Simulated scan of single mutants.
Amino acid sequence: MYIAIADGVGWATSRGVFDCIVEGTRIYLESVDKACLGRIYEPLDEQAQSFIVLRDVEEECFNKFYFCCEKAMLEFPHSDAAQEIPSDHVEGILWNWGEVLNLMRHDSRFRALT
């Protein structure tokens, strides 16, 4: 499972971690911008691929995904999804999630909220 962030930049992870990050973020992004969600999730949803793609989205969509992803990460330990996995796995999922956000912060499209 893979999150393609930019050319040659992405994060590969297990199916379980990928689902936590991608589906946790989907909940927030869907309520913010369905068109943006569609562009990022198209390979996963429409083509049955095992990845999502941020590489080709414009700055606004990229940052919407980032902030929804960050919000989902902060909420994850208290989510229903976290309750369904062994508690000793939560820290590892959050570590992976943090690495995805770190890679995104190094992208030229990233804009911190002011």
Rank of each mutant, 00 (worst) to 15 (best):
S50E: 10
N63Y: 02
Y28G: 07
L113S: 11
R105W: 05
V57H: 01
L113W: 13
L54Q: 03
S50Y: 02
I3G: 00
H106K: 08
K34R: 15
V9H: 09
E59H: 10
E91I: 04
I85E: 09
I21D: 05
H106L: 03
N102R: 15
E42Y: 05
V17F: 14
Y28A: 11
G98R: 08
N102Y: 11
W11Y: 11
I21Y: 02
C36E: 07
H106G: 10
K34H: 14
S87V: 09
E42A: 14
N63M: 02
V9T: 11
W11F: 08
M104H: 07
K34E: 14
L54W: 09
R26K: 05
E91H: 00
T25H: 00
V90S: 01
E60L: 10
L54S: 02
D45G: 08
R111A: 13
A72C: 08
L94Q: 08
D88F: 12
V9E: 13
N102V: 06
L29D: 00
W11N: 02
V17D: 07
R109P: 04
T114C: 09
Q49G: 01
E75M: 13
R111K: 15
A81N: 08
E42M: 03
E46C: 12
L103A: 06
I93L: 05
I5H: 04
P77A: 06
E30H: 10
D107E: 07
W11Q: 02
I21L: 10
D56C: 00
I40S: 01
Y2R: 14
M104Y: 11
L37H: 02
I27Y: 12
V17I: 15
A72E: 03
D7M: 04
F18S: 08
G10L: 05
V90H: 04
A48K: 06
V100K: 01
M73T: 04
V57S: 10
G38Q: 01
K34M: 15
W95D: 15
Q49P: 04
D88M: 02
F76R: 04
Q49W: 03
L37T: 01
D19P: 06
W97E: 13
K64N: 12
C20L: 06
N63V: 03
E99I: 15
F67E: 05
F67I: 04
Y28K: 12
S14T: 15
C69P: 02
G16Y: 07
A6Y: 04
G8P: 09
A82F: 01
M73K: 14
S79L: 08
K64R: 15
H89Y: 14
G8E: 10
T25Q: 02
D7A: 09
S14D: 14
I93E: 01
V32E: 05
A12D: 14
S108D: 11
L37G: 00
P43F: 10
A48I: 04
W11H: 00
S14W: 12
A48E: 01
W95P: 01
Q47E: 15
E60H: 13
Y2A: 06
R15N: 11
Q83L: 11
F76T: 03
E99F: 14
Y2Q: 09
V53Y: 09
Y28C: 06
K64T: 07
S87Q: 09
Y41G: 03
A82P: 02
F18K: 07
